[in-house]
Each structure stands twice: as structure tokens, then as C-alpha cells.
Simulated scan of single mutants.
Amino acid sequence: MPTIALSGNRTDITNPIQKIRSFLLGELVSSGWEISNSYGDQIITLDNIELKIQEADAFIFMPNAQIEDIFYAVSIFVGYQTLDPDLKGKPAVILNTDGSWDLLFELLDQLEIFGTIRQSYRKFLLHSKEPKEALANLSYAARIGIPDSGRKKIISKPTLSFETPLPTVTKSKVCVFCSASMDVEDYIEDGYALGKLLADHNFGCVSGAGTTGVMGSVVQGSVEAGGWTAGSNVPHIIEIEGLPKGLSSFWLRPDIYTRMEVMIERSDAFIIFPGGAGTVQELLALLIFKQSGNPLMAGKPIVLFNRIDKKLQVPFWGKLVTLLNNLANKELFTVVTELEEIIPTLDQLF
């Protein structure tokens, strides 16, 4: 019997949503589905999300979206983008009867315009406004399958982990979350400049160990300036992106969640640079840890670089900041708008 996972938990279920949930449970069970989280008593965290994805054959995201639900949904989309084998053939439907998912959709729409999302997320996360539409979308997706993300493998065997000790002059290790797909010149230049700035100011640079886009330029900037440069990645992403040259340390992990965890564990601060769905996912994971008091994030600042996009003349992360206003304490992160502000801000926050 296939299993479908429903999002949401008891603390965020109001009466109208409880009626919707009850209706869906009846329809799904009668259609032969086994239900995961039927009572809304499970909360998704970075520690358990991989297991929840492996156990499920499909997903329905419920109204009254909370930060954990949005992290869950974005993670599913990122898995589709990166050819995660645990998501092969598993459809995802978002039931948005109350408009609580609208701000996420607005953010993802804007990231598509910026070019940091190359796939149409609406083809992967099927938007439904009514319960019957959600069931119809689920049936449709189960029948036709998941769309092709358009990405192909370029290598077959990822490298093993390796480690180089930190230089004694290193002040702290700073993790940069950013886009591996953005190829606009001024963003690439900013990425390279950030990597160089970190090295020049004796900050170690941690990243997702990507070779392309802004991420590749951050790594290159740090490496070419002689900085200690580390990163983590997973086999199925390495197979489609490869690994950058010059890394001081590399931590191979089996999935994107243990990848995020080792990057969080081995970093002292975080910079959220222009990015796509993966960068949103990573920031949400940091904020969930912060809000829950997880010791992995104790005393570790988050700096959000909200530069103006030169073409559109709007803040790159404007839609993200609006989304977070409804989800997270504003004191959990610091927003800067100029590249030159990042290093002084880190120095102040440590």
C-alpha cells in the first residue's frame, strides 16, 4: 500500500483546516493510501526530513503553512531539481485554501525571473485551491510522473572526503549559501569578491562545494586569495555538477540534509548570498534551528545580503524578507545591502 505524507501539526490546525484534513483522510484511505502524519502530530526537522521523504510515496502540503512546512516543501522541490533518487516518481501537491503559501509562490516566481531557478516550480509543486483539486492533481501526477528537471550526470564517481587543518591565523569559518546556477556577470563578480574578502580577512570559507554560478565564484575567489576553503556535497549532486579545484577540506555526505548539518556544525557564521530554492531551504533550516534553540546554531550569526538587482532595480531577497516577517523572529538574522558591509557586520556580530 503506498504512503502519502500530510504536512501540518496539531498546534497549527484550526477548525476549518481540521475539516479539510478529515475530508482528505477519508478520500485518500478509500483510494488505497496509507497516511503518514494523519493526526498532525509530527514536526519536520533537519534531523528527520530525509527519513520522512524515504518513507513516503507522495506528499500533500496543507493550509496554514508554518516555517517547518515551507522548509519541507522547498526541500522536496530542491530534491526534484537535483535528481534526488529518494524522490523519484513521488508527486507533491500544495493545498492553498487560505493563501498561506502565497508569499512562498511570490518568492519562487521572482527567483525564476532572476534566473536562480531554472525549472518551473509549479510543474513540480502542484498548486491546488480546493481539496478536490488537490486529489485530482495527486491522481494526475501519479499517472504521468514527475517532470524532467533538465539536468544530466557529468561524472559517475564522486571523490572521498579529505581534510586540511585550519591555518592558525584563521579567525572563524564562514559558510556562504548561494546560487550554483546564476550566471549574471555582476553576481559572479560579487561572489568572487566575497570569497577574496573572506580570505583577505582570515575567515575560512565553507560552501556547498559547487563549481558553477555564484557558488563556484565564491570558492574560486577564496582559493585564489590563498584562503582555507572547505565544502560539502552529496553523490547525486556531484554527478551533475562536479567538484571545484583547490578545496582545502571536503566532506562527502549521503544526502542534502546531512550535508547541511555538517556545514552548520563546522561553521561559525553564515552568509545568505543571492541564490535559488536551495539557498532558501538552507536559510529556513538555520532559522528553524535558531528558533528551536538547537545548540548547533548557538552564537552563530546569519547575515542576509539583500543587494539591489541592477536589471530589475529591486532587492534580490525582498520577497524572502517579506515571507520571513510572518515566519521568523527578525532578530535571528541581519540584513545588509552592500557587499562592503558584510565583513564589518561579521566582525561586529562575533
Results as ranks from 00 to 15, higher is better:
1 M>T: 13
2 P>S: 09
3 T>M: 05
6 L>M: 02
11 T>L: 11
18 Q>N: 07
22 S>Q: 10
23 F>L: 08
24 L>E: 04
32 G>F: 09
37 N>K: 04
39 Y>N: 12
40 G>K: 08
40 G>W: 05
43 I>E: 14
46 L>W: 04
48 N>Q: 07
50 E>L: 03
55 E>Q: 15
58 A>I: 03
62 M>W: 04
62 M>R: 03
63 P>R: 06
64 N>T: 04
65 A>T: 08
66 Q>V: 04
68 E>Q: 09
68 E>S: 13
69 D>N: 15
69 D>Y: 07
69 D>H: 06
70 I>E: 12
71 F>Y: 15
74 V>I: 03
75 S>K: 12
79 G>Y: 13
81 Q>Y: 11
81 Q>K: 14
83 L>T: 07
84 D>H: 09
91 P>E: 14
92 A>Q: 03
95 L>H: 06
98 D>A: 04
102 D>K: 09
104 L>W: 07
108 L>W: 04
108 L>I: 00
108 L>T: 02
111 L>I: 00
113 I>V: 15
115 G>M: 09
116 T>H: 11
117 I>N: 14
119 Q>T: 07
120 S>A: 06
123 K>D: 14
129 K>Y: 10
130 E>T: 13
130 E>G: 03
131 P>C: 05
132 K>A: 15
133 E>C: 04
133 E>R: 11
133 E>N: 07
135 L>N: 04
137 N>G: 00
139 S>W: 02
140 Y>H: 11
141 A>D: 01
148 D>Y: 14
152 K>M: 01
153 K>V: 02
157 K>V: 08
158 P>V: 00
159 T>P: 13
160 L>R: 13
166 L>A: 09
167 P>F: 04
172 S>W: 05
172 S>P: 00
176 V>P: 04
181 S>Y: 10
188 I>W: 01
192 Y>G: 00
196 K>C: 11
197 L>W: 10
198 L>R: 02
202 N>A: 12
203 F>Y: 15
209 A>Y: 06
213 G>M: 03
218 V>P: 09
220 Q>D: 12
220 Q>K: 15
221 G>I: 06
222 S>F: 07
224 E>Y: 00
226 G>E: 10
228 W>N: 05
230 A>Q: 07
231 G>W: 03
234 V>D: 09
236 H>N: 13
237 I>D: 08
239 E>M: 08
240 I>S: 15
244 P>Y: 12
245 K>F: 12
245 K>S: 15
247 L>V: 02
249 S>M: 04
250 F>H: 11
252 L>W: 03
261 E>H: 07
261 E>D: 13
263 M>H: 07
267 S>M: 09
269 A>Q: 06
283 L>S: 02
287 L>T: 00
288 I>P: 11
288 I>K: 09
292 S>L: 07
294 N>G: 08
294 N>C: 05
297 M>R: 08
298 A>Q: 08
307 R>K: 12
307 R>G: 02
310 K>S: 12
312 L>G: 06
313 Q>L: 06
314 V>A: 08
320 L>W: 07
322 T>F: 14
323 L>R: 01
325 N>A: 11
325 N>R: 12
326 N>F: 09
331 E>D: 15
332 L>Q: 11
333 F>C: 06
334 T>P: 07
337 T>R: 12
337 T>G: 01
343 I>Q: 10
344 P>V: 05
348 Q>A: 10
349 L>Q: 13
